[in-house]
Amino acid sequence: MTSKSELRAEMRGLRKRLAAADPLAGERLADHAGDLPQGAWVALYRAMGSEMDPQPLARALLATGRTLCLPVVIERDAAMVFRAWSPGEPLEMDEAGCPAPLPLAATVIPDLIVTPLLAFDGSGGRLGQGGGYYDRTFAALPEIARIGLAYAGQRVERLEIEAHDIRLHGVLTETGYTAFP
């Protein structure tokens, strides 16, 4: 049986190959923005490495009147907070080394959290980077819709879910949105 760390390494390589094979996959996300669950505030993320780029989705969401925010890691072992953000606004690195809005941006609670991932399965299982930031945040905000953003090729048959892993409500790929039961 493959360990989580081995699976993460394998899926990082796959995601990198998928990104290289289809550099415009993120552009097709905008076509499916209207399929996402409703909510005024949508938390996105700034892509790092080969993560699916949510920028085209951000533009589409703004065009439909939604407001955006980004996650911010303030403490490494705590849930993330979310700060209001619009494309083009300045960012700084947070405690986890991710681009985040400046402290003067309003802190908000999103209606929908869009998260990057390494792999997902058909029942909402999500394999993240391993830091636990999203799982801690999902546990602190259980009523908020949780949507993975990925390449369709990142879907796997089944992920081993541990007690602290929190399932997604759906996933958006370049081929469309899928809600999980």
Score class of each variant (00 low, 15 high):
A43P: 10
D94E: 11
G132M: 09
S3R: 11
R136M: 05
G122W: 05
P99V: 13
G131K: 11
W41F: 06
T175R: 13
Q55L: 15
W41G: 03
L29H: 01
Y177E: 07
F180C: 13
A150Y: 04
D165V: 07
E157M: 12
A58G: 05
L168Q: 11
P54T: 13
P142Y: 14
G128I: 00
R83S: 07
F138I: 07
D165F: 05
A140L: 08
G128F: 01
A30N: 08
D94T: 12
L102A: 02
G130E: 07
F180I: 05
A140E: 10
A84I: 03
R126P: 02
A179V: 06
A58S: 10
A100I: 06
H169K: 08
D135E: 08
K16L: 12
A9G: 12
T2M: 13
D121P: 10
A96Y: 13
A150H: 07
R15K: 06
V81H: 11
M93E: 15
G49R: 13
A33M: 04
L159C: 09
I109K: 15
A150F: 06
Y133M: 05
R155A: 15
E92I: 09
V156G: 09
W85I: 04
E160A: 10
G39T: 10
A79V: 05
I161A: 08
G124P: 04
A139L: 10
P54F: 01
M52N: 00
R167K: 15
F180W: 13
L57F: 13
G128H: 02
P142A: 09
F120H: 10
R167Y: 00
A78P: 02
A20P: 00
H164T: 15
S123Y: 10
A21E: 15
V72K: 06
T175D: 09
G88Q: 13
M93N: 08
S50G: 01
R76D: 08
M52E: 00
D135C: 04
A179D: 03
P103L: 12
D35F: 04
G88N: 09
D121I: 02
L68T: 14
A84S: 12
A152Q: 14
A40P: 04
T64Q: 13
H164D: 07
H32C: 01
P37N: 08
A20C: 03
H164C: 07
A58Y: 03
G124V: 08
L70H: 06
L29P: 00
H164V: 09
T64L: 10
P37W: 03
A119W: 02
R46L: 13
T67M: 14
P23H: 13
S123D: 05
A21R: 07
A84E: 11
D31C: 11
R28C: 01
V171I: 14
T64F: 00
M93S: 14
G49Q: 11
F120N: 02
A9V: 02
G34L: 09
P142M: 12
M11L: 12
L141S: 11
E10I: 00
V156Q: 07
A43M: 04
E27L: 15
T67L: 15
